[in-house]
Design a protein around this nucleic acid. Structure first.
Lengths: 243, 243
DNA sequence: AAGTGGTCTAGACCACTAC
DNA sequence: TAGTGGTCTAGACCACTTA
């Protein structure tokens, strides 16, 4: 894929961590890695920072770099890692691909709220796309998305039955790379129970988000209701970078 | 507080953005900023990367660095801004202070799992602290935490009835600044329903995490069961793994 | 004292955008 | 072609941990 030094090192280290190559839970020091990979220490640091931001490793000044023991524990099939955005890419694809059933597809005027969130002018139109995602014949997510027609004028019924992000990137070369997300949970509604095969006592996880293209253009507002067993959101927070 | 070059520049730029100083929505180029701040371009880049990772600016190779219009137009979407890790500080902004009811407080040998997660040697002890958090007399969270006695030897019953993070920072000068969290949801158990005043059909949000000190020392493993109306997690994701 | 990660510099070259 | 952000280097010095 990429030919970037730091990304290659990052991927290599990730693989080696997954293979338990560093049984001591400790990585070699940065200067050694720099030498063994034949790159500058800065590039090693950059690779390590990416892994640290994903919560895979953490660094202790003065002592070394260590593998996060929580990283491989508790992995469900569907998992947001902060390293993927869309649903399609969030599956540990062991060959099996999630499927989509289109429930509803309309073009409607953007509400006030959507105008604000998608940065639209009054009177602009959006696609309203309601889909049910299934995996191995089990439904796990009801997705209600809104995409401005101005941004993606070529959507149609057939195209939204697959990954919209992938279709958009393939045809325009523009990728969806950023998102704001809000995660909450609710008791399931009658519709949730019917579509997701839930008992009344079983809840849904709700993920609401705005997705952006790399240049900052808002691309989609999405409301995702997940079967509670599939909500598994991992996140690493570092306060030093948040203010 | 900090005397770091990139953080000072980051804060300064954030202030200037909030003051609408860059009316054109476009920031000066990196080389100009480097010169006007009297620092290297690398430091400017680092400051800009932090802002980009917070979704406040977007960088477009070849054209420049731009302010996210949503940040100026609707800053409330950026709720994560200034957010804190601990429960106590999350409420401070509203003026109200949450209260704590201590349910259980023990010192026990660390289980194998805790040894792994907190980087402990066999035979080490941890505090087991079970607390109920209430806000305006309404309980909203059951918190089960484990803290190594080696890290915080001076805890006692009285002290864990307040904010442990704040107490620890006040007495040692070391702050809890990082966390790795997994967010899920579950139907409520009988205990949840009793303590959190939930109906059987109402779920809990579950946040499990390890909290770290700034130097990377694991400080606490925590399992938090939240009244579903209080689980509200905001996050910004940027696929471009910068830094 | 030795070893570790953190910060910062000065500069080279590359990739993309706009004109 | 000029200007922008992206990547990468080689090295200096600092702050902290461990022995």
């Amino acid at each position: 894929m990429a030919d970037l030094v730091y990304q290659n090192i990052m991927k290599d280290l990730k693989d080696r961590i997954k293979k338990n190559e560093f049984d001591s839970k400790r990585l070699p020091d940065e200067r050694s890695l720099s030498e063994s990979y034949g790159v500058s220490r800065s590039s090693v640091k950059r690779a390590l920072n990416v892994l640290a931001n994903q919560g895979i490793i953490f660094k202790k000044r003065g002592s070394g770099t260590f593998i996060n023991p929580l990283f491989q524990k508790n992995r469900s099939i569907f998992q947001y890692e902060g390293s993927n955005l869309g649903v399609t890419d969030s599956f540990k694809s062991n060959g099996e691909v999630p499927k989509i059933k289109l429930l509803d597809f309309n073009v409607i005027p953007a509400s006030d709220e959507l105008q604000t969130e998608l940065f639209l002018d009054p009177g602009e139109f959006v696609y309203e796309i309601k889909r049910l995602r299934t995996f191995e014949d089990k439904p796990f997510m009801i997705e209600l998305g809104y995409i401005p027609i101005r941004v993606a004028p070529e959507l149609n019924k057939e195209r939204v039955e697959g990954s919209i992000f992938n279709y958009f990137e393939d045809t325009t070369g523009k990728a969806v790379t950023k998102s704001f997300m809000t995660i909450t949970t609710e008791p399931s509604t009658g519709e949730d129970q019917k579509l997701l095969n839930l008992k009344p006592v079983e809840p849904v996880g709700v993920m609401e988000g705005i997705f952006f293209l790399d240049d900052g253009t808002p691309f989609e507002v999405s409301n995702m209701r997940l079967h509670y067993k599939y909500l598994n959101y991992n996140t690493f927070v570092d306060l030093n970078e948040n203010r």
